[in-house]
Structure formats: C-alpha cells, structure tokens
Design a protein around this nucleic acid. Structure first.
Lengths: 336, 336
DNA sequence: CAGGCGTACTGTACCGGTCAAGAACCCCTC
DNA sequence: GAGGGGTTCTTGACCGGTACAGTACGCCTG
C-alpha cells in the first residue's frame, strides 16, 4: 500500500491538492460539504493527517520547543525542583499545542542536539553559560529564553528572586540569635557559574554582613550524591561548629540534617538548618524544613509565556518571581 | 542577510549543491581538500549546518524519539520512578544521537501530539491502552515499544517482573508470620487498566492464596496526592486491622507508614509495610522500607535498545526485567 | 590501446506539504 | 447590465535538503 499523501486524496476526490490541504489546516477556506467529502475520502484511504516533517519544512516551524540542559538528564530528573519545572513547562506547552523536546548538552562532535534538532525555540535551563551548545543556538538565531540563568542583554529571561530569598533565610537565622552560621552550597567556580548558587550566596551575605556575621562556607560540586552530606559533616565535625546552617537546596539541607544526626546533634535544638526551594522534600522531611519557597510551577508557566512571546516576535521583559520564607521545624534559637 | 542554504555555499565555492551536502553529511564522497574549502566557505557565510526540518523531510527520519505518557506530565515527573526512567531513556537516546520528545496525551481535538509531532518512533509508557493516542500511533504505523504496559502481539515490549516481585513481597510477609494482610494499591478499573497494578495484584495473590490468606484491599485513583494516605487510614483504622500491608509503590508505602503513625502504630513493631520500586524514597524513608527492587535505569536502556531495533526493522523479543526483594526495616514478625 | 574500474563530482527528481496570487462564479448594487 | 465584493477552488513556486543514477577522468590491466 503506497503512502497516502494529500495528492492521493486530491486525485480520489477530484480536487486540487491545495484544497485537501485546506480541508485539514484551514477549514474556513472551503465549503463545509466539500470538506466533509475530503475528510471522508482521507479516512477511507487511511490518511493520518498532514505529515509533521513536511509541514514543518513548509511552514517554517515545527511546533515543538526545545529545552537545553547541561549534564546528563538524569540529574535534572532526579532533582525534585527541576523535575517539577520540566513538568510545568511541558504541561503548559501542551496546553498551547506544542511539544517539548529535550536537548541534552552535546557530548561528542557528531551529534549536537542544539544544532541538529528541529525546534522553534529553546528554553535554556541552568546551563553552563560557556557551553558550546548555547553558541550553536545563537548561530542558528534560535529564539530563546534563559531560566535560572545569567541575564544577558536582549535575551528574555525568567528568574527567581534567589538573592532576596536567601537574604530572608539568613535574616531568619540572625533574628533567632545565631551568630555562628555555616553555609553548605554548590561550588561557585567562576568559570562554570551556577547562577542560582551565586545569587543565593550574595543574598546570604546581604543579611549576614549587615549583622556582622562571618559565615563558614563549605561547598561541593553537584555531581556526587553523597557530596553534600560529606561537606556538611566536614562543617559540623569541628569544635567551633555553627549553630545554624544555610543550605543551597532542600536536598542539601536534608543531607545536613542527616550529617548532624550522625554526630548526635538534634535539629533544631542543637542545630538550625534552612533549605531552599520548598520542594516536596521540605515538608515531608524529618523534621519538616524551614526553607525558602519558590513557585516552580509559576516559573514553568512564565518560561512558556516568554518563549511564546519571543516566537511571536516580541521581546518580553525579564521576569523575576518572588520568593518567601517558610518557617517549619528545622530552625530554633541557638542552645547557648 | 538572506538565509544561508546549501545553494548559497555551492554558488560561493562554485560546486554543485549536492557536493556541499556531501561535505556535511557524507565526507567520504569528496576529496578532503574540497571539503575543507567548502566548510571554510560555510563558516564564513555563517552557515549552521543542514536544516533539521528539511533534512527530516528528505531523509524520512527526524532523529528524535517520542515518549507518550498519559495524564499531565506533572504526575510523571513528580513520581521518582518515572522520573528516573525518563532520565535513563533520555541519556541513552542522547548517547545514540537522538533526542527525546515528550508527547503528552491529547486533551483537545485540535492538537494531538501523537499525530502531529514529527518523531521516528515512540515509547508508550504506562498509558491507558484505550487512549486514542495509541490508535493514532497505529494509524501512522509508527514504530513503537510499550513499557510497563500490556503486551500485545507483534509489538515490542519492555516490562518488569511485577508479578514475580509482588509475589516475593507477599511471601516475605507470610514467612514472617503475618496472616492478616492489607493491600494499598491503585484502582484496577477494568476499563483503564494500569498494567503494573494488575500484575502486582496477581503476584500478591499468588503468594497469599497459596498461604490461604485473604487480603483486605483498599484502592485509590492515582491523581490526588493524599489519596494513598486516606486509603491507608481507612484500612488501618478498624478493629481487626492487618498486621502487614503490601503497597503498590514506595510512595504508597510511606503514606501508609505515616497513616499508621498518626494512629499511634509503630512500624515495624505494630505494622509491617512493604513498598515497591525501591526508589530513592525507600532507602531514605523512616523507617527504611522493605521493598521490591526494580532496575529502572536498565528499563530505560532496554526501552531505547528496543526502539532502536524496531527502527532498524527488527522485532525484538519482549523484555522482562527481574525484580528482587530488598529487606530493610519496615517489616518484622507480627506482634501477637 | 581498447576495456574495465574506482574516485570525484553533477543533474534531476523527489520528500509532502504550505503560501500567495489568480480565476471562476455568484450575488448585489446602482 | 457593467462593476464591486465575497466565496471557493486552482495554479505554480518554494521550503532546504537527500537519493540515485549518471558523467568525466585518471589509472591499471592484458
């Protein structure tokens, strides 16, 4: 059975190919009865609908948006916050009639998703800003929106008020009376800058500096799963240990809680711990974490709105979503 | 600046368009020096590489694989197990030079991802087998592989030994001496059949029937987050409560543990709870869960291998991955 | 030195649609 | 009854590549 195309239907019905195309794509361009007839013939021939690839070429758009993430996707999916973001993005895109294509950062030279995959626009999510993939996107003049990422002139962006939120978290510890404060965060390698990590660090310092508190900082690269635990252990397993710890994420915070427990410290009696993100982990953890809430779903929706605007030729203003402090049971005044 | 195509480069260098195409796609078809010259000219003109959409049409394949999931994507991403599966799939695809496109089940009639998005093949993941989207895929004669899904003649499949694993779990409770056993699982609506739910139910019964134990079953539709908790509460908050509970997933098991705690029951002293999946939740939970381990990453890799085989014209044999029981601290002999 | 063969490049025909402009026709209006 | 304006359908070009069957030519072989 030969492939069914617009032409075969046109021949069958005795109209032009264009009319058949219109029957599918622009119903208002032909009479209702002819359209019925065409659709019936199409159905009979087993036609499925206009071929997406051909349509993409002819129309100049594919109907799907890419999402560029660096590192293996596993990390992104296994992190509750980015998973929630992806979910929000994909739901919102679906609602607007677009699909989501995941573009892993290129590993070899052969296949570079950012260069070789057909998409209409791209969301750049917490990517190493120096990644070659971003350069490819720019060469393609690909419409893009950066999310949780350095803001650059002329590129639409969606961010969260990381700095403000971190400041609230640090202020909270200060107000509880903590003076010896530790920080467990991501490495802020100036080369491979993680934007949220930098912003949060700035925010913590905003509040701590104002209070004259000099924090002890331990960092870890994100990759190894137990890394945050080890870092926290190193921070806590010393004589002059902090009484309060600010963490990069809820996952980091829970690792810190576990590290504290392994040293026989109780949270929050002996140690206060503050997370970030207010992911599902935070409320479900033991103890429930005091953390900085961000609207991940809203971030996804905003990102889709922004890329839609860019695709429509606009240049939407940068979006910065608010953060709020959620006080639960992992913080208390220091013991002494 | 006009768009740069193969033709403009061909004109510039003074060769045919086909030769330029070969320079990019089949380097062995022309001399090295001419290729160099062409690539240099392309670079100079700001050419990015063959247009993915055009290439997809001409070659008849797009280089990306779709993944069909029902319900909003949010559920999939927020569930640790499916998130890990997605991660594994996308990593493995990337390694083979393909991208992953997410195809949400269609909500309206206008836009049906399974019909309208260009992909080479599709992984069907825990979908309602009656979903219209699957029918669309079949009409398109789309190469497909079903995962965690009813096996059908002639369609490649990747599954986990849900039944065997569930049997092990039930056997474990029986061997510990439990005779009053509860089950907290998904609704097994015969219409919208969740394949793993049905298989696991069969597996539990395999062991319980053999031991002459008649379980008390409570079910919940997946959607509402607290549903499993409520169901577990209903199961436990009665005089003749079970001493052991078999759960559909680790998430269900943790909900059951929380429900038990809210009734003042200790796990495992007063109640044994067995999960399923051995997701990150299981080991991290309090108490660490006895559960049935499945190799989610292997499942993703197997799924990609299968779809690759199907795309290559083969019809790979059904894959069934093993499950094993992992005994942790949420199970013990019954109190009496 | 004719015949055969491998290499390097070209020509033409698609792939399966959509766009934009035009033609045929009908209804109305002045 | 000529002219204006709407529908409805058709025509031809084009989207930007790739497949495949040549053609031209140098070199080896007998």
């Amino acid at each position: 059975m030969a492939k069914v195309t617009l032409q075969s239907i046109a021949d069958r019905v005795g109209v032009s190919r264009m009319t058949v195309s219109n029957a599918f794509s622009r119903p208002d361009q032909l009479s209702a009865e002819l359209r019925e007839k065409i659709l019936a013939a199409a159905d009979e021939l087993g036609y499925v609908g206009p071929d997406p690839a051909a349509r993409a070429l002819a129309r100049g758009r594919t109907g799907s948006v890419g999402l560029l993430i660096n590192g293996s996707l596993s990390e992104a999916f296994e992190d509750a916050v980015s998973a929630a973001f992806l979910a929000s993005v994909s739901d919102e895109l679906a609602a607007r009639g677009m699909a989501l294509t995941l573009l892993p950062a290129s590993s070899d030279r052969q296949f570079v998703p950012a260069r070789d995959v057909a998409v209409d626009g791209v969301l750049v999510y917490i990517c190493d800003p120096t990644a070659p993939d971003i350069a490819w996107l720019e060469r393609r003049r690909m419409p893009m929106v950066v999310v949780d990422h350095n803001v650059r002139e002329g590129i639409a962006s969606v961010n969260v008020d990381d700095r403000g939120g971190a400041c609230l978290a640090a202020q909270h510890l200060v107000e509880l009376g903590h003076r010896r404060v530790g920080i467990v965060t991501l490495e802020t390698d100036p080369e491979v800058l993680n934007y949220p990590a930098r912003e949060r660090m700035l925010g913590w310092h905003d509040a701590l500096d104002a209070a004259g508190v000099e924090p002890t900082v331990v960092t870890t690269p994100y990759a190894p799963p137990g890394a945050a635990y080890d870092a926290a252990l190193a921070l806590l397993d010393r004589p002059e240990r902090p009484t309060g710890v600010l963490c990069f994420s809820d996952a980091f915070a829970l690792a810190t809680v576990r590290a504290a427990e392994s040293l026989g410290l109780r949270v929050p009696e002996d140690l206060s711990v503050v997370g970030f993100d207010d992911s599902v982990l935070a409320a479900a953890g033991r103890p429930p974490l005091t953390t900085v809430h961000q609207e991940v779903a809203a971030k996804g929706i905003a990102a889709v709105a922004a890329i839609t605007a860019v695709l429509g030729g606009g240049s939407p203003a940068p979006v910065v979503l608010p953060t709020t402090l959620v006080v639960r049971e992992s913080t208390a005044p220091p013991a002494e």
